[in-house]
Design a protein around this nucleic acid. Structure first.
Lengths: 135, 135
DNA sequence: GTGTTTGCAAACAATTTGCAGAATT
DNA sequence: AATTCTGCAAATTGTTTGCAAACAC
């Protein structure tokens, strides 16, 4: 049976305030403001737990660390090659894609994920990115 | 300047014999048959190098380790939730998807990846998977 | 009271890196 | 001879786990 925990609630509440999709470590650093003694292990445990019961979703876009999204509806993501931030892409999810792929494939397909790559608006506008590009 | 190395050639040649997309460790274990003294570091270094010069591509499907594919043409992948193998999905890549997403997005999009999830044929047929499912 | 969750530290897995010697040009 | 590449081991990063005490029911 699942018992209430203030830390878990705070983690979920924090995720819901963000439109970027923070990593466990970013959650940890921010939650520490409210719970100075919280440990990284607790953050990882709660993020996994929340993802496993379908209250949040875990996103892997190919960088070293996983990101977490309070939105569990199927949707797609963007990963910024420069700053590593992850954002939502607001095009409708295409459930037909699974069937289309299924026709060409022997195994059983039940979902898919799409990640777009490029440079986010903030990085495009930052001198940091421009300097790097022209040097 | 890039110098020839027998290890690097062997790694590339090995990758080309496989249609699954092995991890660095699988490459290491197999290359060891030909180069018993090769180290995992060398395998990692060469896989990164080959990927960075565009001779192979690195695939991240959300499991803990990266997979490597000798095919650098844009195409999509399947990841088996049961055994962790990665395979190609033979539907045409859709470059128009980038433009479609771009219309709804402020940053600069230049590519995308799609990964399908499910159970591969081998696992579907294995008693191992069936037992797990019904127990 | 029983069972779950926490903080802490240690363990773990995947990957990267520093270095001295070997191989390639 | 100059430079790149290798094997080895140690370091780093992201994540998981064992445990005793704290908390929720």
């Amino acid at each position: 049976m699942l018992k209430y925990s203030r830390q878990r609630e705070a983690i979920k509440r924090f995720l819901m305030t963000r439109t970027d999709h923070p990593t466990a470590d970013t959650v940890y650093v921010n939650i520490k403001k409210e719970f100075p003694n919280i440990s990284l292990g607790t953050v990882y445990r709660n993020l996994s737990l929340l993802a496993s019961i379908g209250e949040i979703s875990k996103i892997s876009c190919g960088d070293s660390s996983d990101h977490f999204d309070p939105n569990t509806e199927p949707h797609y993501h963007f990963y910024c090659r420069h700053c590593g931030s992850v954002q939502d892409i607001h095009i409708p999810a295409n459930p037909g894609l699974d069937q289309k792929a299924q026709k060409t494939f022997d195994g059983q397909i039940d979902s898919h994920s799409i990640c777009f790559y490029g440079i986010c608006k903030t990085c495009l506008e930052s001198s940091d990115y421009l300097n790097q590009k022209t040097s």
